[in-house]
Design a protein around this nucleic acid. Structure first.
Lengths: 257, 257
DNA sequence: CGCCGTTTTGAGTCTAGTCAAAGGTGGTGG
DNA sequence: CCACCACCTTTGACTAGACTCAAAACGGCG
């Protein structure tokens, strides 16, 4: 399978300062089917894509956009015309209920897609906020669609990206619907671990980009509860947390919480 | 916009016996963008689709399949080769965690799509169980894909169906993450109300196809809690529930819970 | 008519939420 | 470089809402 290497498989110590190493070769949304997949640190571009396909692919993502920490890549009701992949930094997506309540629906790291929700109504359906100074590839949807039409392998890859989003959300619903607070935090850390590993970072030692409040909102619990659960997992010797710096001491134990 | 009428806009009393009136013209998954949409009782087939397109569309969904109550249309890990739309009856989709916990991720009524989760890994990712004797249109994915390739309006409609699924799941996550038990039940009834209306049934008077347990599982609460919330809403004069027969007395009040 | 699965209701328990206060951390400007 | 400020995090005490267990009532079906 043709694929683009995302990172060398060495583990740079996560820069506590906030700025991650960039990698200009993350060309297309990484296809990540739920939390089961332990994919290698490579981004499958499209099964059977030829070099020509790749050249075309590059041509439609020539633009990038920088988003400062706390700023929005797009907001709810913005007209939809592009999808994005994270090149550097990370984002959260938030939907807002009319009564003002907010729900964080996901966190997106390097190589992951943003904006797929907008396709449905031609307007974006959530806010995408940068959690640190970030950069995205901008993929104009009209161009992507025409490329999909020309190259069936890319078409199918795009279907999979969309479907993968559906599967990922199902798994999030499962968490919100059935797990205790402790299990949610444990599952969250393990999910991050898998994603860090897939990006060539250490799966046991990473720096959280989001606050306890954002985490809690994503997990459907309050920030104080998140904090208590971190303390609890720490007492059990499963993780070692100093603020946002996380070390997973016992992954197996964590998965059995 | 070319569209196919689903039902006459009269309200047949829901058959408490279990068998709904069938309608052979529900040809393609109904595109339902979240819970905001109060769409008319018509199924948009594809913006700008021509009559020729429709003929082609009919040709790929010639097969139907009947599923008896309690039986599965497909199960997790079944190989994916088709998507489905509900012609009659209704379904629930359930994902199962390795520890045996289950989460109902959705209920599907006439005109709604099933199986989109399978695209991602070529295997289905949940169980689809009939809640009553039901019938689906079987759409072989390979054929749909080739049709999408030939007819761009159908292609774009399919993108919207996929994206709509993502948006709907986001809204479900919001419910699971932020609402009280009472609000969940109220929101659930209002969602059903909108969907019933879109199908030409009464939006205030309908028969639930699922048990309290299935509802509770979907809503992330226990069956006893569902029952208590029904009693509470009834005391407030917002709904009138006799077992599975529901009458929404005060929709506005219900939306303000 | 009786059985089985479903629903309702009650009483007691426990998890997570709320409110409050103290302790950290990082970023900014002097 | 340090001090200050704003924001984030931790912890405690108390409360509220949902869960558990239990039993009775209901409803559909053979």
């Amino acid at each position: 399978m043709l694929s683009v290497q995302v990172k060398p498989a060495i583990y740079p110590a996560p820069a506590a300062s906030g700025q991650q190493a960039r990698n200009p070769s993350a060309a297309f949304p990484h296809y990540r089917p739920g939390r089961i997949d332990h994919s290698p640190p490579a981004v499958p571009v499209a099964k059977g894509a030829t070099l020509l396909d790749l050249t075309r692919l590059q041509s439609i993502i020539c633009t990038t956009r920088k988003v400062k920490r706390g700023n929005a890549l797009y907001r709810t009701h913005d007209p939809f015309d592009s999808i994005y992949t994270v090149r550097a930094g990370c984002f959260k997506t938030v939907i807002t209920h009319r009564d003002g309540k907010e729900q964080v629906t996901g966190f997106q790291f390097m190589g992951e897609a943003l904006g797929l929700d907008g396709l449905c109504t031609e307007r974006h359906n959530c806010d995408a906020i940068a959690l640190e100074d970030s950069e995205v590839s901008v993929i104009r949807f009209a161009l992507l669609a025409s490329l999909c039409h020309q190259v069936s392998s890319i078409q199918h890859h795009f279907y999979r990206v969309l479907s993968g989003e559906i599967v990922r959300e199902s798994s999030h619903m499962m968490m919100l619907g059935t797990m205790s607070a402790e299990q949610r935090v444990a599952a969250f850390l393990l999910d991050l671990s898998v994603r860090m590993k897939a990006r060539g970072y250490s799966p046991v030692d990473f720096y959280l980009r989001m606050t306890r409040e954002e985490m809690g909102n994503y997990l459907g619990i309050k920030l104080e509860t998140v904090s208590r659960m971190f303390s609890k997992l720490q007492k059990q010797g499963l993780v070692d947390a100093h603020g946002k710096q996380i070390r997973i001491v016992n992954p197996l134990g964590l998965s059995r919480v």
